[in-house]
Amino acid sequence: MRISCPICGERDRREFYYQGAAVALDRPAPDAAAQAWDDYLHNRDNPAGPVREMWHHEAGCGAWLVVTRDTVTHEMLASDLASRVQEAGS
């Protein structure tokens, strides 16, 4: 599995740390209800198919990426810098 980093290009999966579904882009407000925090911290869509995930290019440029990946085929569909995705309003 190879992941494409917008800064470094396509690199071996071993250079990246996997954080999971890209929920971090939509963090609840500190005073949000317990249910919102439970959804954020624990509950997942967990789809068989395309999913948006956070990967960290830790052994490369250090950027956080939002990667769209198919969980059935392991195909990489898109990747962008998390900062850019966040600015664009996810």
Partner: peptide, 12 residues
């Protein structure tokens, strides 16, 4: 260490 339904893994 990544989400998957492939029932097969990777080389690393």
């Amino acid at each position: 260490f990544y989400a998957s339904y492939a029932q097969r893994g990777n080389m690393p």
